[in-house]
Amino acid sequence: MRPILLSGHERALTQVKYNPDGDIIFSVSKDHVVCAWYSHNGERLGTYHGHQGALWTVDVDPTSTLLATGGADNTMRLWEVKTGKLLKTWDFPTSIKRVEFSADGTLLLGVTEKRSGHLGTIVVYEINPDPEAKQSDEHVLRIVCEDSKPTVAGFSYCAYYIIAGHEDGSVSQYDAKSGELLFNREVHEADMQITDLQWAPDRTYFITASKDKTAKIVTTDALEVMKEFVTDTPLNSAAITPVKDFVILGGGQDAMSVTTTGARQGKFEARFWHKIFQEEVGRVRGHFGPLNYVAVHPQGTGYCSGGEDGYVRVHHFDKPYFDFLYEVEREHAQANL
């Protein structure tokens, strides 16, 4: 099916997210505006105004009532999805690079940038799911990362751990109650920044994308690398598809060096890899700048990508996508019938 082009942003997209039902897409961009869109037809549902700087990150709670955003204006904000009302603003000394709700929506974490004498931190707040309630000012946990700044982070299943990806290519596991560093593992090439960390639906494993041109599937418990996907371009994002055993990788030549090369050499394509066999199965072209984020529909019926070119492209999968099976998978499926 033809992709739907969401051209509501004026600057590069930084993150796009589906809500758990998959009917709404939230997008944030460097143009200070948060947009919400109907995923099935690309109609804009509304915008959330208030941020004073480029936005880096967005997340929606599991019931689609609350929306958290963070950006370069050193604030993390909480919005009511339905009305667009700003519920809460938390101020920080540096910008917020990543926000994420826990699976049950009662915890919210934010990753703060390391800058001007401030170390990179991960802060956690307790959230009252009621939009009318007053949200607390005080964080329940603050993890200071002294070695290498965190770039991405998220809650594991049951919010037992906080998993963070670092600038130096390593992944850490923290106790989500005490904030104690349980262990740190060098997952990607040294000093190759981890650019994205997205969870499998059940949060027992996750995928990391890195500037070292690879994406890796890592287990939550032992931080053990299970699968590796090697591409020929720096990666900005990686997502795991439900229903089908694929992963979608997005990236491309750095925005800085793009001007000197053609679109062809930029490699601005979404790449589909088979999650288990680690083989590339397809590519989707369209963006004319690097892909900054790819998000998958929670029911696995489509995906969308936000690019440096300022567009969100929403794709709905066709039947052949669902029919595609490796011979081995087909045999297995028939044996289970």
């Binding site: 758990p20 599991p62 699976a103 049951c158 639906p201 929670p298």
Partner: peptide, 14 residues
């Protein structure tokens, strides 16, 4: 662990 939400693919059973 009784992780209902996780088993449901991240969707809260309302």
């Amino acid at each position: 662990e009784g992780a209902v939400i996780e088993l449901n693919g991240g969707k809260v059973l309302q």
